[in-house]
């Protein structure tokens, strides 16, 4: 979705109220070759920066001053609504489906929701930023794992094979068929077969586009 040329570095705005972490992130992203277009300590500063610079990606902490509840999340939702060309990655100390669904709204494109501690793996973290900037969705494995593992009466997921479950989880994390194939060392064809079987077993409408698929799977899992 980004119109930026491949050679130009992604322009990122960081919103995080803890100074050390904010500066750490700036360093991390700069060293990884991204351009940090600005940093904000609260949601108001963030919105001002985004309005002025229209960055490619925003990294926002959920909890920020003044109320320390979900300012970052609200700001992210607003950014997605007002500036569709700016992707957002929301960082949190804990992941909750309530936050996730508020963030996804009806359109999971260009949205990421991950645990803060994912910053420890520099490559995966920058890759996630790049994916979001490219219009994909990035959902933290932790929240997906919880949804998959949730106790259900007459659990329909029990009918899935282990491989199908793994495919389901990766789909819910926002991965494309190619990415799933690469991660599971399968051919894209096989993945497609698994996806088809799985949708049939769960009585889900097959969805071709990745972002519709993510929403359908997450909604199904959350029921």
């Amino acid at each position: 979705m980004s119109v930026t040329a491949p050679s130009a570095p992604l322009r990122v705005v960081i919103a995080e109220d803890a100074v050390l972490l904010r500066e750490g992130l700036r360093r991390l992203l700069t060293e990884a070759g991204l351009e940090v277009a600005g940093t904000a300590a609260d949601a108001v500063q963030l919105l001002t920066l985004v309005a002025a610079g229209q960055p490619d990606v925003v990294l926002a902490d959920v909890r920020m001053p003044p109320t320390q509840t979900t300012e970052g999340l609200q700001a992210a939702v607003e950014i997605r609504r007002r500036w569709p060309h700016t992707a957002v990655v929301v960082l949190s100390q804990h992941v909750e489906t309530e936050h996730l669904f508020e963030l996804l709204a009806d359109d999971p494109r260009g949205v990421g929701y991950v645990l803060k501690e994912r910053v420890a793996d520099v490559r995966q973290f920058t890759a996630a930023i790049a994916r979001v900037a490219a219009g994909e969705s990035v959902i933290d494995p932790e929240v997906v794992a919880r949804l998959v593992a949730r106790q259900r009466r007459d659990n329909p997921l029990a009918a899935l094979t282990g491989r199908e479950l793994a495919v389901l989880a990766l789909m819910a994390e926002g991965r494309s068929n190619q990415a799933i194939a690469a991660q599971l060392y399968l051919s894209p064809k096989t993945v497609e077969t698994h996806v088809g079987n799985m949708f049939a077993k769960l009585c889900l409408e097959p969805a071709v586009e990745d972002h519709r698929r993510v929403l359908a799977v997450l909604t199904y899992l959350r029921r």
Binding site: A18, L20, L21, G24, L25, R27, L28, E31, R63, Q68, Q93, K116, E117, V119, A120, D121, V122, F125
Partner: peptide, 17 residues
Amino acid sequence: HDGAQQRLVTLSLALGM
């Protein structure tokens, strides 16, 4: 949240780098 957790995340970040 604002203290130990934040510092540990920062520490993880530094270790990752």
